[in-house]
Design a binder for these strands. Structure first.
Lengths: 125, 125
DNA sequence: CCATCACGTTTACGCTTGTAAACGGTTACA
DNA sequence: TGTAACCGTTTACAAGCGTAAACGTGATGG
């Protein structure tokens, strides 16, 4: 289904859809316009490609399409994550995590949350 | 210098070089042969492209080249990390870290080390 | 001295990506 | 009843990528 790779620009589109699906093309365009300077045609191309890749589906409502994600965000994240982990950190997840911990500013709450996750990891190992 | 993007296959080559530079082309080929099934010509193409991108340099030793990284691994990792963080997690580093913590099996030592990093983060905030 | 080998360089080629204009059909206003 | 506006579809096109063969040149063994 979706062992397909999603390109950089396509991710931007997918985030919009995962955040508020179902959405028509214009709704996607309107949302993206706030953050990107893409021509409408450009966004439509991406919607198309995403449908072809099987990541999106649409249903028709009159003359317009209503798009929904077909792949779940979590699954796509997992796939992209594995690939990045492998490519950049040679698969060493603790290196990856260490890197991002060091290069991020985290709030006290975030730090707490991460500590909790670590505790769980420890408990179940 | 190196705000250039390094492709997937190119990362594989760069890891080899960062791990043991300086290296001749054959040394790179020999190392990569253990993990990849690439023709020698393919690897040479990548070395070339990396030189053109400014990520690698070489010096000549007789008829052969000796390659060295020109960009530091840490810098490339930082760049690729930022880009991935943005693309997949919309810039939310704590989400990213949480994701990788949850999807990784970590040893007790690794968990300890990560806790320490968290402690430091907390201290300096 | 010639053929072969080893090196780096050039050329190749199909696919993906970013970016968008052009096109054909329908709808709605003037 | 045109005709402008809107929709989705097709076509475009240059750059990057994965993958590698072909080429020119200098060295080397017979």
């Amino acid at each position: 289904m979706a062992n397909v790779s999603i390109s950089d620009a396509e991710w931007q589109v997918m985030h919009v859809i995962w955040d508020a699906q179902p959405l028509t093309a214009q709704e996607v365009v309107a949302t993206l316009r706030q953050s990107h300077d893409w021509a409408t045609a450009t966004i439509k191309t991406m919607l198309h490609r995403l449908v072809r890749k099987g990541v999106l589906t649409y249903s028709q409502d009159g003359n317009r399409y209503v798009y929904r994600a077909r792949a779940r965000r979590a699954d796509c994240v997992k796939l992209a994550g594995r690939s990045f982990l492998q490519r950049v950190f040679g698969g060493e997840s603790s290196e990856l995590v260490a890197h991002f911990l060091k290069t991020s500013r985290l709030s006290a709450e975030e730090i707490d949350r991460l500590r909790n996750i670590l505790d769980e990891q420890e408990a179940q190992s």
